[in-house]
């Protein structure tokens, strides 16, 4: 079954205490960060620490994602080389564009062969945080078979666009739309940018609901306290679940009677509505909200 990525929690890569706790904080995925959370003078130290953490700590309950440094820095290629050898689930590639993803794909294939891992087993999530990355996001996802999702980086993107980042997030409306639509078209996860005010829970709820309403499938978090709120927003509501179950029941009934299109409560039910109901029920089952 496909992994849930409602929350992806960033953890600084050079902090042993946080690396130890990362697995038990309730996030669907953890991002062990070698990039922005690590100072230039500690890149070597964090790389070795994260490598050993993956070898030593039981992360079996979460997806282990490592954010490497950009490949055009002196650190990025070393990060990929060292980290891929201990087989994290996924690499998060920053400042992603087509060339960068192709390069990481080739590097991973070589390492997987050398280490005797199944080629293609380490996945990639592209961090879209430049105007170029955003405008070519379809090609970026197509650049590797390993691609399982896109994470939208709102801070760097707005910096690249030369615009101000606000709490309301109107300035990333287009980016969210674009990422959500392309990811849906290519059936990969669309992960929203983190909400940076870790004390504003109401703001986080609104921001997450907005991302969900635009079609994003998960949200990154920068503090463990954000996880529960994000999960609550991404869980289907009781009303949504009941309605979805009713749609599927009505569909079975209609199939028995040989009808293609049918109506429920006076509204026409066709394939898109049925697909949506199936998605909702499947999510409800995976979250244990309803029985299988």
């Amino acid at each position: 079954m496909q992994k849930l990525r409602r929350t992806m929690l960033f953890m600084p890569g050079n902090n042993p205490g946080m690396l130890q706790d990362a697995a038990i904080l309730g996030a669907d995925a953890i991002i062990l960060d070698l990039e922005d959370a690590v100072s230039l003078t500690e890149k070597d130290s964090a790389r070795i620490l994260v490598r050993d953490a993956i070898k030593y700590i039981d992360y079996s309950q979460v997806e282990v994602v490592v954010r490497v440094n950009p490949l055009d820095t002196e650190f990025g290629p070393q990060d990929v080389d060292v980290i891929a050898r201990v087989k994290p689930d996924t690499l998060l590639v920053p400042k992603a564009d087509v060339e960068e993803i192709k390069l990481v794909d080739i590097m991973l294939a070589k390492i997987e062969e050398e280490e005797g891992y199944l080629v293609g087993s380490i996945k990639i999530i592209a961090l879209i945080e430049t105007a170029l990355g955003l405008e070519t996001v379809y090609e970026v996802i197509k650049a590797s078979q390993r691609m399982v999702g896109v994470l939208l980086g709102g801070e760097d993107l707005t910096a690249d666009l030369g615009i101000t980042r606000t709490k309301e997030g109107e300035e990333i409306f287009y980016a969210r739309n674009k990422v959500a639509t392309v990811c849906r078209a290519l059936r990969v996860d669309a992960i929203d940018t983190p909400f940076t005010d870790t004390n504003d829970y109401e703001g986080l709820t609104k921001d997450t609901a907005r991302a969900k309403s635009l079609g994003l499938t998960g949200k990154s978090a920068i503090n463990p306290r954000q996880i529960e709120i994000i999960h609550a927003v991404f869980a289907p509501t009781e009303v949504e679940l009941k309605q979805a179950l009713r749609v599927l029941a009505a569909m079975e009934e209609a199939e028995k009677e040989g009808k293609g299109v049918f109506s429920l409560d006076g509204k026409m039910i066709d394939a898109p509505v049925i697909n949506r109901a199936r998605t909702t029920v499947e999510l409800g089952q995976r979250l244990g909200l309803i029985e299988r």
Partner: peptide
């Protein structure tokens, strides 16, 4: 209060430096 993996990683980093 470092765990073994941290001790090993820090020693390795210091020596490589």
């Amino acid at each position: 209060g470092a765990l073994d993996y941290t001790i090993g990683a820090r020693v390795e980093t210091a020596i490589k430096r």
